[in-house]
């Protein structure tokens, strides 16, 4: 079947969608998605932000907290710490697990115990968290990374706690998002006139063209407006928080989308089978 962005039966390139990676670094990927519809590209963007599962601290049991920060404040800070989720597929969602509360199949336990005994200020960072599962450690960027600051201690202050990290998606809480940002652009010259502000007097003068404009031919300013044109070239750049590799975020995002579709298709078949059984049929 025809998978391209063009309508049914239209002549043109029927090669289907394609991807060109422009840049791949430790924490970012930049690629161009072509020959597909805006809705599909936007689904990819949305799924990368909100539905790629990762591991994040979800429950905190505080034993001792004599620091200047309140318990819930520290618990919130702990939740935001990215945890290496490369092996996230080995962990189950707690709701799908057979255990009553949580277990090693569906969670990772991290403990922290720091006490300041010197006159100097002591900093507690994500590096002080000790994981019970070596596959799931707080993210360390490189050897110069000193960890993420959680709290500062004065002499006599102590912090002792146990964290339960769980698998989740950012639809539930943004701490599970594998990305800190997804840049999404199409039509850098605004040929389709999808963007317009009432405050503009001369859009060409007021808006500098983006870097992606270099990759497209500059349009003739006298060219008539093509009202049938549709966007089919999407410039996407994803920046991760470090819990997953950028290329994995994209492929896991697509996989999540496929799983959703497969699930809906299965549900549709089941629904149909159960309705055909009771012979009453549908009136539609």
């Amino acid at each position: 079947m025809d998978l391209s962005g063009a309508p049914y039966g239209s002549l043109g390139t029927l090669s289907g969608p394609s991807i060109t990676i422009q840049e791949l670094k430790k924490d970012r990927i930049s690629f161009i998605l072509t020959e597909t519809d805006l809705s599909v590209a936007n689904s990819l963007r949305r799924v990368m932000i909100a539905e790629v599962p990762t591991i994040a601290i979800d429950m905190v049991e505080i034993e001792t907290n004599t620091t200047v920060l309140a318990d819930e404040f520290i618990a919130h800070r702990l939740g935001m710490i990215p945890i290496d989720s490369t092996d996230v597929e080995r962990i189950k969602y707690t709701r799908d697990c057979t255990c009553s509360q949580y277990c090693s199949e569906c969670s990772v336990e991290l403990t922290l115990h720091v006490k300041c005994t010197e006159d100097r200020t002591k900093i507690v960072t994500s590096k002080d968290l000790v994981s019970n599962n070596p596959q799931f450690q707080p993210v360390v960027e490189d050897k110069n990374d000193q960890g993420i600051l959680i709290v500062k201690l004065r002499k006599g202050h102590e912090l002792k706690l146990k964290c339960i990290a769980k698998k989740g998606v950012a639809k539930e809480h943004a701490k599970w998002s594998p990305v800190s940002g997804v840049a999404f652009e199409y039509d850098p010259y605004n040929k389709l006139r999808h963007t317009h502000y009432w405050i503009e007097e001369d859009a060409g003068k007021e808006w500098p063209v983006s870097g992606n404009a270099k990759l497209e031919a500059e349009p003739n300013p006298d060219a008539p407006f093509d009202y049938n044109a549709k966007p089919d070239r999407f410039y996407i750049e994803t920046e991760t928080v470090g819990s997953l590799k950028p290329e994995d975020v994209v492929s896991m995002g697509m996989k999540t989308l496929l799983d959703k579709l497969g699930y809906v298709q299965m549900q549709l078949k089941e629904e149909l089978a159960s309705h055909q059984q009771d012979q009453t049929g549908w009136s539609y």
Partner: peptide, 12 residues
């Protein structure tokens, strides 16, 4: 849509 996503995954 599944087929299309599969094409995108393979392309990537």
């Amino acid at each position: 849509l599944i087929d299309l996503c599969t094409v995108v995954v393979d392309a990537f």
